[in-house]
Amino acid sequence: MTSSLRPVKRYSIEQCFVPLLTSSESFILSYDEHPRPLVRLFNSGCHQITCIFLPTLLVDMCYSSYLDVFLLLTSQCLYKLNPSIGQLEHIDDYELLKENRFLSSLCSTNDHRLFILYRFGEYLDEYPRGKRIWKRRHLCDSLSEDISLIRSSCTIDNPHLFLLGLLIVEWNGTWRVDIFSSSVQKLHTGFRFSGWTRDVWLSNWSPYECWFVGSRCRLMIDSKGQPKNISVDGVDCDMKNIACMKQIDQIKLMVIREEKLLIFFK
């Protein structure tokens, strides 16, 4: 699938543990945390087209295909970024949970929902807000487990179906990605792996039909939470995150984030 991809551009960035994103067709978003919060927007030609400073640190971000915007979760509120006009706006009809709770992650699904995860899986909320807020006991096998991130799958072959992948760390530092249905019922307990820290990230669902778990081992996780053996031809670097744009059955653009570098492949 990627044998024709070659590196075409490199950009220096600051160290950050938030994954880069692609929109469905045209845009790439990355984030620098130092010297102040900054999002960088690139087009599919690998050119940086705008930089936008954020008033507070970014926690996580995702792309919503049905809204056609990037969604940015900060420590204080939710923003949406329209990539076509480079405009940042509040999402005013969602209020973060009170009691000074830390935020952890969010993802967008193809049934027009957002899932917002509060730190360590204490709560999982949805927008537009439903009647239920899931708690740690609904999501984990044990209260000694924490949830770091949530991601959704969305395949072209089944556009109305999606799964949720929750990156869970056990009490002994072992990690796994558990798979849930769209109604947040657990379907699969994931493969266990070790050697990471809380700086680990779960990338968005990719054209490889899997999530990518950075860092050293380039672990790919399929829709049953199991490792998937994939060879990314022509790529020999210390990947932290990977994002792809797909055109029909081919990857037309791939972006890899190293420690302080973005590499574009076309």
Rank of each mutant, 00 (worst) to 15 (best):
Y127L: 12
Y127T: 10
P128C: 13
R129V: 13
R132S: 12
R132F: 15
R132P: 02
I133F: 11
I133D: 09
I133V: 15
W134Y: 12
W134Q: 02
W134H: 10
K135L: 13
R137G: 09
R137Y: 12
R137T: 09
L139G: 05
C140H: 01
D141S: 07
L143K: 03
E145K: 01
I147A: 09
I150A: 00
R151A: 03
S152G: 05
T155R: 12
I156E: 05
N158S: 09
N158D: 12
P159V: 08
P159N: 11
L161P: 00
L163V: 03
L163W: 05
L164I: 05
L164W: 04
G165Q: 05
L166H: 00
I168Y: 00
W171D: 07
W171E: 08
W171M: 06
W171C: 07
T174F: 03
W175D: 08
R176P: 02
V177E: 01
V177Q: 02
I179Q: 12
I179K: 06
S181G: 07
S183M: 13
S183T: 11
V184Q: 06
V184S: 04
V184T: 01
L187A: 00
T189R: 12
G190T: 09
F191D: 08
R192M: 15
S194K: 09
S194T: 14
S194L: 08
S194Y: 15
W196T: 11
T197Q: 09
R198H: 11
R198F: 12
D199S: 14
V200I: 15
L202P: 07
L202G: 03
S203T: 04
S203G: 11
S206K: 06
S206L: 11
P207K: 09
Y208V: 07
